[in-house]
Design a protein around this nucleic acid. Structure first.
Lengths: 337, 337
DNA sequence: CATCGAGAGTTACTCGAGTCAACAGAATCT
DNA sequence: AGATTCTGTTGACTCGAGTAACTCTCGATG
């Protein structure tokens, strides 16, 4: 350590509004007015002086002071259950972008599908006075006492059930699953199974309902339902198990791309061909579905629109609404197309 | 909208320290002392009274006020260039965990590999007075004026070149690449190509140096170098192009898992078998490498350790150091093992 | 000419929490 | 007993920015 070439000796400890005011020869109030296009008008001449001073000092308003006075941190929080799942990563990214467009920063917290951790993060967000929280809970009926006590608006994101009293944004799981089964039945399959990701919270997943609906509509008898956690290795296990079954279904609907990725891997290992021996349709529309081999036919969620809608729901307030978006079928090779 | 079952009529607008003090019958100072294990001792009896009042009111200290007084937001910022790349997602997740252990929240911003966006985010983080920033820049010599002006410490994360004056944490790209080539040469390959992700910033990537070193050590002539952006579709393009070449190399080192995933997909399409026709080793150690078919032999980065080290570098301060971690070779099927 | 009003600036208070100087009372020492 | 230390508590000031309420100037209107 010889020197600090990047830190000049003149250690100016961050300029404040007062410094700007002094340098520009005006009061602190006008500085605020200039910075915020404030509630009062400022003459062009003084505005110019202030702007020059701001530039000269490299002044930036202190967000903490602003937040204290305004009672708004201009931050939103988001709790995601699983950063291992690319779907949630995409969702978080889309929300971050939509929030940034409205001038909000996003504080992302990972609950790792643990209820304790989810609650801890909610407390943290509450004390940071975020202006709203996007919650992708692992629970069906999340415990929102912390946030309610702090009067922080919440939108349940990726929550497709109607939750009275709360805003929510989700995708039409049931219709998506129905579409998937319809498509597989259209390829001539008669034994269509379901690989269902298990959610911690209990409650019936719409995909299960839609799958059953699709099977019934096609006049078939329901294939087996296999339950497994929402993770790649779980899909792999399922495939291995399925490989040993004599009465293996000829088609599967997987409730998530990552489950399908695991399945694919397992089928490759055991020499079962996709789609020839087993056809596959999954859910989410992540890049992994596109680049796997064979490419996965999947029900893509309109992530950008969902994110935008969720951000709107938070920043514009209004009465809590439940928005459900339709997924769209993306045809690739895994279904036999 | 009939009613708001979750919001009782008694809208208590978030309790402050003063409310707690009043209810407990003490001064506001003791409340602070209790909350922070403050600089002064408090008798057990009063502490109990305060604790009761805190619980009764659901009091939470206002983070904005705290930040204003302390000059520290207890937040760290992180700028990642590409949330499409699972490596950065894992890194961000690991950093978030390590930061949380130290009591810091993480503000994650996505620069989408754009310099303008990177700079905008740095300005934003500066005005939010984060206590430090992890920067995974797309640039070789990032422009840190904003952060320097605000006296915010930075650690260059995923930066393997020595940058005098800055703390940095990275992986030994060169040694990793050398290891990869050594391994491929050990399988008997003599024409070993390089698929190199292009970085916007210019400057020589250590993986290129290590690849060349490995080839030389094995007494071989260097195979072709193919450059492409760090994205899955780019890998796919490269594979298609390679498929048409008569002098195709028998082995490839790809500088990133996502490039290799694209390659794999392209080779499948064109009927080229991996590892029989082309052996493949890649870099990063993401889950996609594990679940692709065939599984990718890859140089796994010690992400947890890197994250921990980066957080330490920020919160403990000290003189800026350059920490380089060794990657480890994970053998799977794509190399021919 | 007196009065009003618009426009430009300034002063001073406020948000909620951290913490220091001051102080009261109890405990210890000489 | 008087002096000294220690313990527990409090009032008051501070951080930086937003803004209501006030002052001052100048021109227009009755």
């Amino acid at each position: 350590m010889v020197a600090m070439p990047h830190t000049p000796a003149s250690a100016k400890p961050t300029a404040t509004r007062k410094d700007v005011a002094r340098l520009a020869g005006v009061s602190t109030a006008v500085v605020s007015y200039v910075v915020n296009g404030g509630p009062k008008r400022v003459s062009p001449a003084t505005e110019a002086k202030v702007r020059t001073a701001i530039a000269a000092l490299g002044y930036r308003p202190n967000a903490a002071a602003r937040a204290l006075k305004l009672g708004s941190s201009e931050m939103l929080g988001m709790i995601v259950p699983d950063t291992t799942n690319p779907f949630f990563v995409m969702l978080a990214h889309a929300v971050e972008e939509a929030a940034a467009e409205r001038g909000y920063a996003l504080l992302i917290a990972n609950s790792d599908a643990s209820i304790a951790s989810e609650r801890r993060h909610m407390g943290n967000l509450a004390s940071r006075r975020v202006d709203g929280v996007f919650l992708s809970s692992v629970l069906f009926e999340p415990d929102l006492r912390e946030l309610e006590a702090a009067e922080i608006p919440v939108v349940l994101l990726n929550h497709s059930a109607e939750s009275p009293g709360f805003a929510s944004v989700g995708v039409d799981l049931q219709e998506g699953a129905r579409l998937a089964v319809e498509h597989l039945a259209g390829h001539g399959h008669t034994r269509i199974g379901l690989v269902m990701g298990t959610n911690t919270g209990g409650g019936l997943d719409g995909r299960e309902v839609g799958w059953l609906e699709g099977v019934r509509e096609a006049g078939l008898v329901p294939g087996p339902i296999i339950r497994a956690p929402f993770r790649r290795p779980a899909g792999l296990e399922v495939a291995r198990e399925l490989a040993g079954r004599p009465d293996r279904p000829t088609a599967l609907f997987a409730s998530s791309d990552i489950l399908a990725v695991g399945l694919l891997r397992g089928f490759h290992e055991t020499g079962i061909r996709v789609p020839e021996d087993v056809a596959l349709v999954s859910f989410d529309g992540s890049p992994e579905a596109e680049f796997s081999w064979p490419g996965l036919t999947t029900l893509a969620q309109p992530i950008q629109e969902m994110a935008r809608s969720a951000v709107d729901a938070l920043v514009t307030g209004g009465s809590p609404s439940n928005r459900i978006f339709p997924p769209t079928l993306v045809r690739r090779a895994s279904c036999g197309c």
